[in-house]
Design a binder for these strands. Structure first.
Lengths: 207, 207
DNA sequence: GTCTATAGGGAGATAGAC
DNA sequence: GTCTATCTCCCTATAGAC
């Protein structure tokens, strides 16, 4: 399945909003603004203006501003879990699966859903404790994918560190790329960056 | 020089505030609150209450709230640059120097200055563009230390990836530990965590 | 150097017309 | 489903007394 087909099927199941609809467009703009200015500095007036309505009208779609933040995060995790699963299925060996996961996460962070992924990392504290608990449940599915693959590499003796530590280090390292990686400025492509991450972990690029 | 001696000499040079003085205590509380609730959600009333004064009195010490954020960041970088330099001087080989840097940065992030280090990472966007430029200058000195060591390892053929990419990955990975690493809960000591990071990079622990 | 009091501005959210 | 109008609250920062 292509990335677009995955998105379409999630929309059909009502797990993520159609980016063409009113709700989907708002969430997309919200992700952009939250990433750019931070959740707190983004006002409901900013959000409304970004989709061309008045601030009062927002509250027809969402009860509170925080509900918007939560929706951005929930839909992002749902989409990316599906993308990761698809990326892994195409790979055969644990090493190839790891590469697929790294590549897919870098793509999530630096591609179309990058703004929402950055929000997930940097605006976490702005989410209420209750909402955090809900979102964490979804995250566990996603993390299990990684731990399986890293565990297999560890069993093969090709990974010297503990899988759960490596996963947490990679979470930080890959998320952080959003602050510095600029593919459009030339230099490093997404595949090149993936090669660098694999090389850092001791897996030389196979040309 | 011990860590405490380094701190004392920076205080003597007026490069960081004495934690016992009024300014130093405020900055320490500010770091704690900014880390806990975020800069935007922390009010000047919160800051004042944390040191037992009224909000209006704060503005006798700092002209604006943002000036407090900037001071937290500047003093943190100054202290940590000095700590890193000292940590490196004690090591001989590039590998040992890398370990010393990793250990020192993990200690900065998870030790006494951890709150301020986390603020540096997570509240960056809350700093005005002008202040960001000032702080970035200080950061360059700090980063050069890392690139020298990673470059030496690369020359030795013991590092497969590009030094500047590895440094950025490590910045993310090590900063991220602040969100999950809890030494007091047992399990992993700071040295153990350092070993894990080194192992991840392909340098087995030497017992 | 700290206090009290308050100015001045925006913030999130609501109500009811269309 | 969007508009206008507005409520209420709380934020940063200032002023002047002590």
């Amino acid at each position: 399945m292509s990335q677009n087909q995955i998105l379409q099927s999630l929309i059909a199941e009502n797990l993520v909003s159609d980016p063409k609809g009113a709700r989907g467009r708002l969430l997309k703009e919200a992700a952009r603004l939250f990433r750019e200015k931070g959740y707190e500095r983004t006002t409901v007036r900013d959000l409304a203006a970004a989709v061309g309505i008045q601030s009062g009208s927002l509250f027809h779609h969402f009860r509170t501003k925080e509900e918007i933040l939560k929706a951005v995060m929930v839909e992002t995790i749902r989409l990316n879990t599906a993308l990761m699963q698809a990326a892994m299925e195409a790979a055969e060996t644990p090493k190839d699966k790891l590469r697929a996961l790294v590549r897919a996460e870098l793509e999530s962070i630096n591609g179309q859903t990058g703004e929402a992924m950055a929000v997930l990392v940097f605006e976490w504290r702005s989410l209420s404790a209750d909402s955090q608990a809900d979102v964490l449940e979804l995250r566990d599915i996603y993390e299990a994918l990684w731990l399986d693959v890293l565990g297999a590499l560890r069993d093969q003796g090709r990974l010297l560190a503990e899988p759960f530590v490596v996963r947490r280090m990679l979470t930080g390292a890959l998320s952080w790329t959003v602050t510095w990686y600029r593919p459009e400025r030339g230099g490093l492509t997404l595949d090149g960056l993936t090669d660098q991450v694999m090389a850092m972990l001791g897996f030389p690029a196979t040309p």
